[in-house]
C-alpha cells in the first residue's frame, strides 16, 4: 500500500540553512546537503529545500547545492524558491533535483505549470499554494510573499486549476496556522485534498505528534511537512513515524538507530 510521507523542509539562504539547527553531531549543521543526508538516514521520505535568498548569485549557489545533494542523498528531493521560468526548472532538474516547487510564478503566470509538466513530466512539478481564510468571503484565498500579498483567487478553484494545468502535487501551507504550532489547517487541507486527484502535502502548524496524524486522517493529506520542529529536534522524523505506525497509518518505518 502506498505510504503516507513525512517530509522535512529546509529553508536555505545563500547556500546555508537558515536559523541553524540543534544537530550537534554534524560537522557543519548549516550545510543543507549534510543535513539532508542525515534526514535520509533517519527515515525521512523526501526532503524539500526552500531557497529564500535574494542575492544575485543565488542561482549558482542553488544549482551547486542541488548537484551536491544528488551525489549524497538517496531519497527524492524538491527545490523551490525563486523559480520563474522553464529554463530555471530545467537547470534545477538537470542538477539532479527530482522535483521543483513553484508558487508566486505560478500565480502570476499559470501557463508555467503547463510548460513545466509538458517539458519534464507532471511528477516533477509541485505547485506550492499558500492560503488564508477570508471571513468576509467565507472562503480560503491564495496569498503570496509569505502571506503579505493577496491575490483574490479562491484556493479550491486554484488547486483544481493547477491540477488541470499538469501539476503533479500540491504543497499546501495555511498562513492561519503556519508558525503557531497548534496543528495543521485541517479544514483547508481537507477541502483542497477532496477537490483534486493529485497528492496534497500539508504544511504549516505542526507542533506535536497528534497534529501529523490529524493532517492525514482528518485533513486527508498524502504527506506531512515540517521545518523548524525537526531542525530543533522538538520531534524527530523517527518519533513521528513510529507514532503514525502505532495509529495504523501506512508509513515506511524509520531506520533503526538513527533518531533525527
Amino acid at each position: 500500500m502506498l505510504a503516507k510521507r513525512v517530509i522535512p523542509c529546509l529553508d536555505v539562504k545563500d547556500g546555508r540553512v537558515v536559523k541553524g539547527t540543534n544537530f550537534v553531531e554534524l560537522r557543519d549543521a548549516g550545510d543543507p546537503v549534510e543535513l539532508a543526508a542525515m534526514y535520509d538516514k533517519s527515515g525521512a521520505d523526501e526532503v524539500v529545500f526552500l531557497d529564500i535568498s535574494a542575492s544575485q548569485e543565488r542561482r549558482g549557489t542553488l544549482l551547486d547545492m542541488a548537484r551536491r545533494t544528488a551525489e549524497q542523498v538517496f531519497i527524492p528531493f524538491t527545490v523551490g524558491g525563486g523559480i520563474r521560468t522553464v529554463a530555471d526548472i530545467r537547470d534545477i532538474l538537470k542538477a539532479g533535483a527530482d522535483k521543483i516547487s513553484i508558487n508566486t510564478a505560478a500565480v502570476q503566470r499559470p501557463e508555467l505549470i503547463r510548460e513545466g509538466a509538458e517539458g519534464f513530466g507532471s511528477q516533477c512539478i509541485v505547485v506550492a499554494i499558500d492560503v488564508r481564510w477570508i471571513p468576509q468571503a467565507q472562503e480560503w484565498q491564495v496569498v503570496t510573499h509569505g502571506g503579505t500579498q493577496e491575490t483574490g483567487r479562491e484556493a479550491v478553484a486554484w488547486a483544481q486549476e493547477v491540477e488541470a494545468l499538469g501539476a503533479g502535487e500540491i504543497l499546501l501551507t495555511s498562513m492561519d496556522t503556519d508558525g503557531v504550532k497548534d496543528g495543521y489547517d485541517l479544514k483547508a487541507t481537507a477541502a483542497i485534498s477532496g477537490a483534486v486527484n493529485i497528492p496534497v502535502i500539508a504544511s504549516g502548524g505542526a507542533g506535536k505528534l497528534e497534529h501529523f496524524r490529524d493532517a492525514i486522517t482528518m485533513g486527508k493529506a498524502d504527506a506531512v511537512l515540517a521545518a523548524s520542529l525537526f531542525h530543533f529536534r522538538e520531534l524527530t522524523v523517527k518519533e513521528v513515524k513510529e507514532y503514525l505506525i502505532a495509529c495504523g497509518i501506512p508509513v515506511r518505518p524509520a531506520a533503526e538507530g538513527v533518531d533525527a
Binding site: 502506498l2 505510504a3 521520505d45 503533479g168 497528492p199 504527506a223
Partner: peptide, 10 residues
C-alpha cells in the same frame, strides 16, 4: 487510481 503513483510502496 491516482496516476502517476508517486511515493513509497512495499
Amino acid at each position: 487510481l491516482k496516476v502517476p503513483q508517486i511515493g513509497w510502496n512495499q
